[in-house]
């Protein structure tokens, strides 16, 4: 029999036993995909009551392997009423209705901001560690490498692309690139004339295969440049591990 399935069964059994005997321990729930990432990164599995079903999707969840075997929920109100739940972790777009109900039931709600910079990733990490009373883990996790001359950009196929003061822009710098879009801040709609102007050696694509790559102009433009697709699981949500992985992915293109 498939070992993954056996492992799955074993994990389920473990969760079941925990829920019988150690109910008080599995008390933390995360309410959306990005909160899942934080919780899965920092909290030991035995303390996790449930994560969202999205956390098990390997395409979009960095910690999908860790999430398999854990209890999952779909964000339905009735799934969230279990008295075992003591703390809920969510991002700042949490539905006020759900927030209200959970608060009334005495659940502690920890709201995380979506980090827009590397500094904010660290801040949110420290914040969550403190809030959940976890053991301090190694800090200052993003060492800066030497700067190369190579210019690169991150480009969203729908046009929306990250500029200077964004997580992806900073990741480019940390990975040793010069960010071709550093002259604007935040996210911006980019048309191809702007990419041409930025003249990057590497284009990191944000949104899977795009019809753009069949366009004659794009084909010619990319002839002497590299096009690298960034996996969704490292660009959708940002916690320490995803950002680290993002930087590593970018770094690899130097050697290849």
């Amino acid at each position: 029999m498939d070992t993954a399935v056996q492992k799955g069964h074993f994990m389920w059994a473990r969760v079941f036993i925990f829920s019988l005997f150690l109910q008080a321990q599995a008390s933390i729930i995360s309410l959306d995909l990005c909160a899942d990432q934080w919780v899965l990164e920092l909290v030991p599995p035995r303390d996790i009551f449930a994560v969202t079903y999205l956390a098990q999707d390997p395409d979009i969840s960095f910690f999908s392997e860790k999430a398999i075997g854990l209890k999952v929920h779909k964000g339905e109100i009735e799934e969230l009423l279990d008295p075992a739940i003591k703390s809920a972790v969510a991002m700042d777009n949490l539905d006020p209705f759900i927030k209200n109900i959970l608060e009334k039931r005495g659940v502690r709600i920890i709201v995380l901001k979506s980090p827009q910079t590397l500094e904010e990733v660290n801040e949110q990490r420290q914040f969550l560690i403190k809030e959940l009373g976890l053991k301090e883990k190694d800090s200052n996790p993003f060492p800066s490498p030497p700067l190369s001359r190579k210019r690169a950009v991150c480009y969203g196929a729908s046009g929306l692309s990250p500029g200077g003061k964004t997580l992806l822009g900073q990741a480019l710098t940390k990975a040793g690139f010069e960010n071709g879009f550093k002259n604007f801040k935040g996210w911006k709609y980019i048309d191809w004339e702007k990419i041409l102007e930025a003249d990057p050696a590497v284009v990191f694509l944000l949104e899977g295969p795009s019809k753009n790559r069949h366009h004659p102009f794009w084909k010619r433009f990319m002839k002497n440049r590299r096009e690298v697709e960034l996996p969704k699981k490292v660009t959708l949500c940002a916690c320490y591990s995803t950002v680290n992985e993002l930087i590593e992915t970018m770094k690899k293109t130097h050697h290849a």
Binding site: D59, I60, W192, E207
Partner: peptide, 24 residues
């Protein structure tokens, strides 16, 4: 759609744009 980027692409597409269409 499980893919948030696809959803984003759909929303952008629905807004309409004249850019980046090839001569073909």
């Amino acid at each position: 759609s499980h893919n948030p980027y696809a959803s984003l692409e759909i929303i952008f597409w629905l807004l309409g744009s004249f850019a980046h269409h090839s001569l073909g």
